[in-house]
Amino acid sequence: MRRILLETGAVNAVEATITERHQQVLQALDAAPIMPLARTALRHLANAALWRSS
């Protein structure tokens, strides 16, 4: 199964989508009318969700 996912490009497509969504989240946080401390905490949360192990 893993070989098929790699050979079809599915893994790369999902990783690209994750990266794109992460950038969208960070942009939304930068534009959000929230306190700096909340922004920082939410950025840490977004980063923690992105950096995962398989």
Rank of each mutant, 00 (worst) to 15 (best):
M1C: 01
R2Q: 07
R2P: 04
R3D: 13
R3S: 09
I4Y: 12
I4P: 01
I4F: 11
I4M: 14
I4W: 12
L5F: 09
L5M: 14
L6V: 08
L6S: 09
E7M: 12
E7N: 10
E7S: 14
E7L: 14
T8W: 09
T8Y: 06
T8M: 09
G9F: 09
G9I: 07
G9K: 10
A10M: 02
V11D: 00
V11R: 10
N12M: 02
A13E: 15
A13C: 00
V14A: 13
E15H: 14
E15P: 00
E15M: 15
E15I: 05
E15W: 13
A16R: 05
A16N: 06
A16P: 00
T17W: 13
I18M: 08
I18D: 03
I18L: 15
I18G: 06
T19V: 08
T19W: 07
T19Y: 09
T19C: 05
E20W: 12
E20I: 02
E20N: 03
E20L: 15
E20T: 15
E20R: 15
R21A: 09
R21E: 14
H22C: 03
H22W: 11
Q23D: 13
Q23K: 01
Q23I: 02
Q23W: 06
Q23Y: 01
Q24M: 14
Q24A: 14
Q24Y: 10
Q24K: 08
V25E: 08
V25G: 05
V25C: 12
L26Q: 12
L26A: 10
L26D: 10
Q27M: 12
Q27D: 15
Q27R: 13
A28R: 10
A28M: 11
A28V: 02
A28P: 02
L29S: 05
L29C: 05
D30A: 15
A31C: 00
A31V: 03
A32I: 00
A32Q: 11
A32L: 07
A32N: 03
A32V: 03
A32K: 07
P33I: 00
P33A: 12
I34P: 03
I34M: 14
M35P: 01
P36M: 11
P36T: 01
P36Q: 10
P36S: 08
L37F: 07
L37S: 08
L37D: 02
L37E: 01
L37N: 02
L37C: 00
A38Q: 12
A38C: 00
A38F: 08
R39W: 04
R39P: 00
T40C: 04
T40V: 10
A41D: 13
A41T: 10
A41S: 10
A41K: 04
A41V: 11
A41H: 11
A41W: 11
A41C: 02
A41F: 08
L42Y: 04
L42K: 08
R43T: 05
R43G: 01
R43K: 12
R43M: 04
H44D: 15
L45I: 04
A46K: 03
A46Q: 02
A46H: 12
N47Y: 14
N47T: 05
N47A: 08
N47P: 00
N47G: 15
A48D: 01
A48C: 01
A49T: 02
A49L: 13
L50C: 09
L50R: 14
L50S: 07
W51K: 01
R52M: 09
R52G: 04
R52S: 06
R52L: 09
R52A: 13
S53F: 14
S54H: 12
S54V: 06
S54R: 14
S54K: 10
